[in-house]
Structure formats: C-alpha cells, structure tokens
Computed example of a mutant assay.
Amino acid sequence: MTLNPRFVLSALGVAFTAYLGLGWPWWDDGFDAPWTVTVFAVALYLVTSWICIFWEGRRERPAPEEPEDPAIAGSGGRVDEDTSTVAVQSFMTSGVSGPTVAPAWVAALALVTAAVLPSLIWANVDVAARQLPYATWTIGAIGALMTIVVVRRRPVVACIGIVLLGLQGALWIGLVPTLSLGLVGSAMWTAVAQLLMWSTDRASRESMQLERLQRAASEWLASQAGRQRERRVQVRRALAVAGPVLTRTIAAGGDLAPHEREMARLAEGRLRDELRGRRLLDDDVRGVLEAARQRGANVTVLDEGGLDGVGERELRVVRAELAEVLRNARSERIYIRTAPHDTIAVTVVGRSRADGEDTVDLWQEIALPSREH
C-alpha cells in the first residue's frame, strides 16, 4: 500500500493543530477567561488551520526547465525547441500529491487569525496570568498555523504573521517573555518549513531533469537501434542487387564482356536508388527506372527528406504519379529529387542535348497528396 504524501502531511497537520487548539491546560487553577471568548478563539484557530490544510488552490506556476544536455540532444535525442515553457510539476510539493498554492482569501484569513487570536486571549485574562500556559498557547498555535501557510506556498504571509505575533507578545507580556515562551520556536518552524520546501522543490526539479535525460537517452538508443536495423536491411538489398555482378567481376578479374558491363551499370543504378531514395520506390517505379537506364538514360534519384511524415497511402499516390511521369520521359539525363516543401513532394527534371546545346525537356512537380485533400 502506497501512502499519498499529501494525505500524510494533512493528517500530521490536523493532529498537531488539534493538539495545540484543544490540548492547552484550560483546567488549571486561575483560569479566568470567559468561556465564550475561549471557545470562539479555539474554533477560529481550528477552522482557519483546517481550511489552510484542506482548501484546494491553484496549482503552482510551472517553473522553467534547464535545457537538455547538448551532448544527448546532438546525438539524436528529441529536445523541445523552447524548453523554458515546459511545465515542471513536483510530485512531492505541488498538485494532486502535494500542497498547492493557497488561495488569497485563505492566506488573508490566516493572517487575520494571527493578528487577532493572541490579543483576544491576552485581553481577556488578568495581567498576572498572561504568561501562564492557558494564555500563551496561542504563540505555538500561530507558529504552527504559519508553518502550514508556508507549506501552502505563502511564505510572505507567514513572515508577516510571525512579525504580528511578536508585536502582540511584546505589547501584552514583553518581548523577552514572548521569545522565551515560544516565539523563537514558531519562527524556527516557519523558517525550517520554507527551507524544506526549497530543498524538496530542488530535488523534484533535479529528478524531473534526470527523467528527461533518461528519456532522451532511451530515445537516442532506440533511434540508433532503428538505424542499425535499417542499415542491415540496406546491406541485404545491396547484396541482392549487386552481389551477382560483384561475384562475376571478381571471378573475371574485371575483364567483363560488353553485356556484363551493361549489367554492372544497371546494378549500380539500382543500388544507388535503394540507398538514396528508398521511400520513392515500389515495383512500378523500379521498373520504369530500369527501363529508362536500359534505353541509355542517366537517372539520379535523391531523397532529401521531402517525404518525411508522409503516410503510406499518400506515398502510393506519389509513386504512381512518378511512375507515370518516368514512363513517358525521353530525356537523356533524368533527376528525381525530393526536398522539404510545403506543397511539392517530388520534382522531376529531364535534360537532353539538342543541336549541341543542353536543354531542359522535362519539368514535372508532384504535389503532396496530404495538402491536396
């Protein structure tokens, strides 16, 4: 069974405030405060404390994150362009599992209680009894309340509350007795609470950063594994395409017959196509490329990322149109190129020599199907 951190903190807060509010020795001899005042003071303190503990507030404003490690980012890990806007939610100190920022009216209620409660008690007891436990319980009680306010991320309000408590104590019983009867401890509680919040927030940010670095490293390793698989596939295809020709070339010592040289040229073209423009290829495109080379054309296929993010259905449309363009092409040199563009998927350019001049006799742009629909 896993305990919710917020549940544990809330239970401790309720138990401690209940002890301070109800456990003070009101039964001691000499207690002379009116019961109505006492009941009102205790009720005000408990209600305020428990509202500060349980009233849900807004989530803490996300803190900016540090950029990812450049070494990992440069190795293939995915990094957001603007990491300063990434939300950092501390598991232990904000959100569902921890304290949220107290609403302004809750903080104001706590401050009013700190400003009213000690004077209310001291004003209703004799001067000689103002340093007795049943009259000074408010010093520790307000200290605990301000500690809760700090945990609810209102440290300025807590500091003001401690100052108000000290001023009231100095006014009613003197500064030295106030310090000796609990003001120092109350101030220390709030200070330690703030230090703990800072330390847990820092630990949470570092934990989140470590998690991001681990995620980036995992993504990099996954990408490397994918590239290795892709390279193995390409090597197998290269061996299937060029293996027989290479074997024949080695066996013949490079002395190939004319038809064997033609086979080597075609195999080289097929291999280049597989390595440079695999996403453009299917059986129809491979067939028309082979036919173009067999009639003597010099064909260059180059994919520079223009088809990244294009789905398989859209790729089939692009390949079908490319095959149709190449089937009708009669150019001596054909260049097929993809590049990142908003509307164009593939550009086909054909050049031939006519009357001693090099002219463009084919220019075809194939649009991105996803943009058309």
Rank of each mutant, 00 (worst) to 15 (best):
333 R>P: 00
291 A>L: 06
293 R>M: 04
312 E>A: 15
327 R>Q: 14
305 G>E: 09
324 E>D: 13
310 V>M: 12
325 V>I: 13
317 V>R: 12
285 V>A: 06
323 A>S: 13
331 S>N: 07
285 V>W: 08
286 R>A: 12
285 V>D: 04
285 V>F: 08
296 G>F: 02
333 R>V: 12
302 L>V: 04
321 E>G: 12
301 V>G: 12
324 E>A: 13
319 R>P: 04
304 E>Y: 02
319 R>W: 04
326 L>V: 10
284 D>I: 02
310 V>E: 02
320 A>T: 14
288 V>E: 11
298 N>T: 13
312 E>W: 06
298 N>K: 13
305 G>L: 07
323 A>F: 09
293 R>Y: 06
333 R>K: 09
307 L>H: 10
314 E>P: 05
287 G>F: 02
285 V>K: 09
310 V>S: 03
300 T>Y: 09
315 L>T: 05
302 L>N: 06
292 A>H: 08
334 I>K: 03
324 E>G: 07
316 R>V: 04
330 R>F: 00
330 R>C: 01
290 E>V: 11
290 E>T: 15
332 E>L: 10
297 A>G: 11
300 T>F: 08
329 A>S: 15
326 L>Y: 11
306 G>L: 01
294 Q>G: 10
309 G>P: 00
303 D>P: 11
305 G>T: 12
300 T>W: 04
293 R>W: 07
306 G>Q: 01
298 N>R: 14
292 A>R: 15
300 T>M: 06
318 V>L: 13
317 V>A: 10
293 R>Q: 11
313 R>C: 03
289 L>A: 10
294 Q>P: 00
296 G>S: 00
326 L>M: 09
303 D>E: 15
314 E>D: 15
326 L>G: 10
302 L>P: 01
295 R>E: 10
293 R>T: 05
293 R>C: 04
326 L>K: 11
332 E>S: 15
309 G>M: 03
329 A>N: 14
308 D>H: 05
303 D>L: 11
298 N>C: 05
304 E>T: 11
313 R>N: 12
301 V>K: 10
310 V>W: 02
307 L>C: 08
295 R>M: 11
311 G>Y: 02
